[in-house]
């Protein structure tokens, strides 16, 4: 992972294996500031990516991301290691986002549930659905981001954790405190919601 220092991009060393992360966690438990800094470097962007899709206001999202790491630092002595640090951090992030969302009384406009019986799916033969093409199509990215922000936080959280953060179903279940079956159902519905959004975009474009 990389960070920006001025105009230069510096590649940071991530805790690549379990042993090194375990050593880092031990040092963090003993309130080792430098060790915790390494942890922040490893996870700050990913946590922010999750938080900013859960909270609309970008400044509030940045503040909430800080709150996640402050809370993690204050409670690191209570981290028992039963789950990974990633799961623990995202769990803190999720709960903080839910609390903030309740305070802000955010009401997303949810699209009706996708009916599998309809059988409509995206035509993957359409060149716009090639990931490489999508990477450079900013307009489409905006549509996707809007589609993500328009779904409920329950669906959004699962979609981001699985498809963006590449978490396994069991890990997501542990993070959000849900059964695995519920995680899969919500993931399906979230993707179906995005399919609807993208379908309308394509039809509008055509």
């Amino acid at each position: 992972m990389e960070i920006c220092i001025g105009s230069a991009r510096v590649k940071l060393r991530e805790p690549s294996n379990q042993a090194s992360e375990a050593a880092l966690v031990d040092r963090c438990r003993r309130q080792d500031f430098e060790a915790f800094g390494q942890l922040v470097d490893a996870y700050q962007n990913r946590v922010f990516g999750f938080v900013r899709r859960m909270i609309v206001n970008p400044e509030e999202a940045a503040d909430t991301t800080q709150d996640v790491f402050i809370r993690a630092f204050q409670n690191f002595d209570r981290f028992d290691g039963r789950c990974s640090v990633r799961t623990w951090l995202f769990r803190i992030a999720y709960h903080l986002c839910v609390d903030k969302a309740r305070k802000n009384v955010r009401s997303p406009q949810e699209v009706g549930l996708y009916d599998p019986a309809d059988g409509d799916e995206i035509d993957v033969a359409d060149t716009r659905w090639q990931p490489e093409q999508i990477a450079i199509d900013e307009e489409l990215m905006t549509v996707v981001e809007e589609g993500i922000s328009s779904m409920s936080e329950k669906l959004r959280s699962v979609l981001i954790l699985h498809d963006k953060e590449d978490m396994a179903y069991e890990e997501i279940a542990q993070t959000l405190g849900l059964p695995v079956g519920t995680v899969k159902s919500r993931l399906f519905l979230a993707r179906a919601h995005l399919q609807e959004v993208l379908k309308r975009y394509m039809e509008a474009g055509a």
């Binding site: 990913r46 940045a62 799916e121 993957v124 990215m141 993208l198």
Partner: peptide, 22 residues
């Protein structure tokens, strides 16, 4: 159903979203 073509297409789209940086 999660492994269907449409679902996996959406997955790839979400994966392709740009990385965030602070």
């Amino acid at each position: 159903m999660l492994d269907s073509v449409g679902q996996q297409a959406v997955r790839k789209i979400v994966q392709a979203l740009p990385e965030d940086s602070l």
